[in-house]
Amino acid sequence: MPSVQEMFDVSGKSVIVTGGGSGLGRAYAEVMADNGANVCIFDIDEQRLAETVDAIKAAGGSVWSQKVDVSDRAAMAAGFDAVAEKHGRIDVVFANAGIDAGPGFLTPEGDRNPDGAIDAMDDEHWDRVIAVNLSGVYTSIKNAARHMKKTGGGRIIVTSSVAAQINEAIVGTPYMPAKAGVDHLVRNTAMELGMFGIHVNCISPGPFMTNIAGGRLKNPADRAAFEAQSLIGRIGDPEDVKGLALYLASPASSYVTGAQFVIDGGSMLRIA
Rank of each mutant, 00 (worst) to 15 (best):
G19A: 11
V182L: 11
V63A: 07
Q66F: 05
P2D: 04
G23C: 09
N113A: 12
I44R: 13
I141E: 04
A120V: 13
A120T: 14
P114F: 12
A178W: 00
A97T: 04
R26V: 01
N211S: 10
G266T: 13
I170Y: 12
V68R: 04
A97F: 14
D100E: 15
A101H: 02
M191G: 10
A29I: 05
N201F: 02
F105Q: 10
A55P: 04
A145V: 09
A58E: 09
I212H: 02
V93E: 05
M121W: 11
A117P: 00
V39I: 08
G243I: 09
G98S: 11
L24Q: 09
D100R: 08
S250K: 02
D43W: 08
A145W: 00
D69K: 05
A252Q: 10
A190M: 12
E227N: 08
E124N: 14
G206I: 00
K67S: 12
V83E: 02
D123C: 13
K86P: 03
R234K: 15
A225C: 10
I170D: 07
N201K: 15
I41T: 05
R155Q: 08
G172M: 06
K67R: 14
E227I: 07
R89Q: 11
H199S: 07
A120N: 15
A55S: 05
M32H: 08
A272F: 13
A95M: 09
H125E: 07
N133S: 10
L244G: 13
N35V: 04
A117Y: 05
A190E: 05
G116Y: 04
G215R: 12
I263R: 00
M209H: 12
A59L: 01
S140M: 06
V137W: 03
I170F: 12
A272R: 15
S250P: 05
T159D: 00
N113P: 15
L185Y: 03
Y28W: 06
A117M: 15
I235T: 03
A101T: 08
Y247D: 14
K57A: 13
M148R: 07
D72P: 01
I56F: 01
G243H: 11
T189M: 09
A145G: 13
L269W: 08
A120S: 15
A259P: 09
S161K: 12
G110V: 12
M76V: 11
A224D: 02
I56D: 00
A164V: 00
F261R: 04
A29R: 04
S14Q: 02
V182K: 03
E239S: 13
V162F: 01
I198T: 07
N219V: 11
S71N: 14
I141H: 06
S253K: 01
Q66M: 11
A27D: 02
K67D: 09
T18L: 07
A164C: 03
R89W: 09
I99R: 05
L244F: 12
V93P: 08
G88E: 14
D237N: 13
V39G: 01
A59N: 06
V262A: 07
